[in-house]
């Protein structure tokens, strides 16, 4: 249990970042969250670079889910 919730949350958060519904997140999209989250631009850039596993500058739903599930399960263990 929890895995479906986790995926739902990941999808929800992806859409929070991908406000234009492009299907991917850019660093600019991430930096836009600066207004909504208590994180600095540097932190958000760091988050993006960590999640962007292949470093191509685009965050796919898959990369986002991977990062989120890593966080999710490390929190629950």
């Amino acid at each position: 249990p929890g895995q479906l919730d986790m995926l739902k949350k990941a999808q929800e958060f992806f859409q929070t970042c991908d406000t234009e519904g492009k299907g991917f997140i850019t660093k600019k999209d991430m930096q836009r969250l600066h207004n909504e989250l208590p994180l600095s631009l540097e932190d958000l850039e760091d988050v993006f670079d960590t999640l962007d596993a292949d470093g191509n500058g685009f965050l796919t739903p898959e990369e986002f889910n991977n990062g989120f599930s890593h966080f999710f399960f490390s929190q629950n263990n």
């Binding site: 949350k9 929800e12 958060f13 929070t16 909504e36 989250l37 208590p38 994180l39 932190d43 958000l44 760091d46 988050v47 670079d49 960590t50 999640l51 990062g67 989120f68 890593h70 966080f71 999710f72 490390s74 929190q75």
Partner: peptide, 29 residues
């Protein structure tokens, strides 16, 4: 070792990021 520090920091920043998103959505963490 700066690299090790960067790795640990990234993990913390990631946790911070997702926790912030969680509290933004639900109103509480």
């Amino acid at each position: 070792d700066p690299n090790m520090k960067a790795g640990a920091t990234s993990e913390g920043v990631l946790a911070n990021f997702f926790n912030s998103l969680l509290s933004k959505k639900t109103g509480s963490p």
